[in-house]
Amino acid sequence: TETYKYDDKREAEKAAEEFRRRGITVTVEERNGTWVLESK
């Protein structure tokens, strides 16, 4: 599991889209005002 942090929800979702395009499952969730993207 890799974790990436973003200040902006849009950025996180854009990154998530890129991962999914490569066939990687990711989750995006907000933690304490930071958007956390996790690849499984």
Rank of each mutant, 00 (worst) to 15 (best):
T1H: 12
T1Q: 11
T1M: 13
T1G: 12
T1A: 11
T1N: 10
E2K: 13
E2W: 14
E2M: 14
T3V: 13
T3L: 12
T3N: 09
Y4G: 05
Y4N: 06
Y4H: 10
Y4P: 05
K5W: 14
K5I: 15
K5Q: 12
K5L: 13
K5M: 13
K5D: 04
K5G: 07
Y6A: 01
D7C: 14
D7K: 15
D8W: 03
K9T: 02
K9Y: 11
K9L: 10
K9V: 08
R10I: 12
R10D: 13
R10Y: 12
R10M: 13
R10T: 10
E11D: 10
E11R: 06
E11V: 07
A12Q: 00
A12V: 03
A12P: 00
A12D: 00
A12R: 00
A12W: 01
A12L: 03
A12E: 00
E13R: 03
E13G: 02
E13K: 04
E13I: 09
K14N: 08
A15H: 07
A15M: 09
A15P: 00
A15K: 08
A15E: 03
A16Q: 06
E17P: 00
E17N: 07
E17G: 05
E17T: 06
E17W: 07
E18T: 06
E18I: 08
E18Q: 09
E18M: 10
E18A: 11
F19D: 00
F19Y: 08
F19M: 11
F19L: 12
F19Q: 03
F19N: 01
R20Q: 06
R20H: 05
R20Y: 06
R20I: 06
R21M: 09
R21G: 05
R21S: 08
R21P: 00
R21H: 05
R22M: 09
R22F: 06
R22Y: 06
R22L: 10
R22D: 03
G23T: 01
G23S: 02
G23N: 03
I24G: 05
T25E: 13
T25C: 14
T25G: 06
V26N: 00
V26M: 08
V26H: 02
T27V: 11
T27Y: 10
T27H: 09
T27E: 06
V28W: 03
V28K: 00
V28A: 02
V28T: 03
E29M: 12
E29F: 14
E29S: 12
E30M: 10
E30G: 04
E30W: 15
R31D: 06
R31K: 09
R31E: 06
R31Q: 08
N32D: 12
N32Y: 05
N32K: 05
N32M: 05
G33A: 03
G33N: 04
G33E: 03
G33D: 03
G33L: 02
G33Q: 03
T34I: 15
T34M: 15
T34E: 12
W35E: 00
W35L: 01
W35Q: 01
V36N: 03
V36L: 06
L37C: 04
L37D: 00
L37S: 01
L37I: 13
L37N: 01
L37P: 00
E38A: 10
S39K: 14
S39G: 08
S39L: 15
S39M: 15
K40C: 12
K40F: 13
K40W: 14
K40V: 13
